[in-house]
Amino acid sequence: MSAPKDKTILITGASGFVATHVVKAFLERGYQVRGTVRSEQTAVNVRKNFLEYSDRLSFAIVEDIAQPGAFDEAVQGVDGIIHTASPFQFVVVDQEKDLLQPAIRGTTSILQAALGQPQITRIVITSSFAAVANLSKGLWPEHTYVEDDWNPITYEEAKVADGVSAYCASKAFAERAAWDLLEKEKPHFSLATICPPMIYGPVEHHVQDMNKLNTSAADIYRLINGSTQEVPPTGFPAWADVRDVAEAHLRAFEVDQAANERFLITSGSYSYDDVCDVLRTAFPEIKDKIPMGQVGTSQPAVYKVSNQKAKSMLGMEFRSLESSMKDTVKSLLELETRLQ
């Protein structure tokens, strides 16, 4: 394997919460990185985060990843691809048109573009635990999810499902489309997919307004800014730290055995009660803003998510909830001060 400095990695959606950490991981490892962004201004914002690596960071403008040929120019001459970009609609009128098809096309278009680039060795796709979980089973406490599990929703069901179910379905169909293309085309490159659940961790991407945080950062910010009076119910009780997710992308690209493998990336289960307990202790200066759970209330039993494959095949170790939440909130408080 040639040295990282001789390899260029395309990282799609480079301005995102997860992607910023992925870009950082590859730059720190020594790679040349080409990030896709939607505009020149976004490229300027991303570059500000990585001034010390400016000689190894470049950009390609891709305004709409779901358009045919969207990545044809961006993939020219790269050695590998980390595909983190995924279409996301907050207001969905038509599940198929607004969610399912854009997610599928966004994934297949980059794979098809890569077919014409024989130097590309591996593509790593950011999938999701949403592509793994069986929502119809609820908390399913007797079950441990592994990489062989798939969200069983059908396309016909997804077209008329509620927004959360349709979004989860879109992640499953996008990932399945990637594996189907691999099976059909037998390409020169290998594939790996990363399936994290809720992703927390420090905010390092460009943020202009605390009201426009990414979803998971906003999820924690509401617990420390006084806007949430009661501990909310935990919707998806499994989590990962964004830095671990980024490291998993790097290792899934580099490790030979990761070829054509799927990885669940998680530190385990959690609840918002756990989070609030950690934060009240770690940040006593804001403890009055942090909601308090009911004393003596036990948490319901929940499914488990196995990270054994990531540990054994990628050599991953995972951060604790305490360290992740401390770093998340520290970054949010610093960002809040900076934007005031």
Rank of each mutant, 00 (worst) to 15 (best):
Q95F: 01
Q95L: 02
E96H: 12
E96N: 12
L99P: 00
L99D: 04
L100I: 13
L100K: 03
T108I: 15
S109M: 05
S109D: 11
S109T: 14
Q112K: 15
Q112D: 06
A113S: 15
A113P: 03
L115I: 06
Q117W: 08
P118N: 11
P118R: 05
T121V: 05
R122Q: 10
I123M: 08
V124W: 06
I125V: 15
T126Q: 13
A130P: 03
V132R: 01
L135D: 11
K137W: 06
K137M: 12
L139P: 05
W140V: 00
P141A: 10
P141C: 09
H143D: 13
V146T: 15
E147N: 07
E147H: 05
E147C: 10
E147I: 03
D149P: 05
N151W: 04
N151M: 11
I153T: 14
E157K: 09
K159P: 08
K159W: 07
V160G: 12
A161H: 06
D162Q: 14
G163L: 14
G163A: 14
S165G: 06
S165T: 15
A166Y: 01
C168P: 02
A169K: 00
K171L: 07
F173C: 07
F173L: 04
E175S: 06
E175L: 00
R176N: 12
R176W: 08
W179I: 06
D180K: 09
L181T: 02
L182E: 11
L182F: 13
K184M: 01
K184G: 02
E185P: 01
K186H: 15
K186F: 01
H188L: 12
F189I: 14
S190A: 15
L191N: 03
A192D: 09
T193R: 02
T193F: 05
I194K: 07
C195D: 10
P196C: 11
V203W: 00
V203A: 04
V207D: 05
D209L: 04
D209K: 05
N211R: 09
N211L: 07
L213S: 12
T215S: 14
A218V: 03
I220A: 02
I220R: 00
Y221A: 08
Y221Q: 05
R222D: 08
N225M: 06
G226R: 03
G226E: 12
T228H: 11
T228Y: 11
Q229P: 01
Q229D: 09
P233E: 15
A238S: 14
A238N: 10
W239H: 10
A240Y: 02
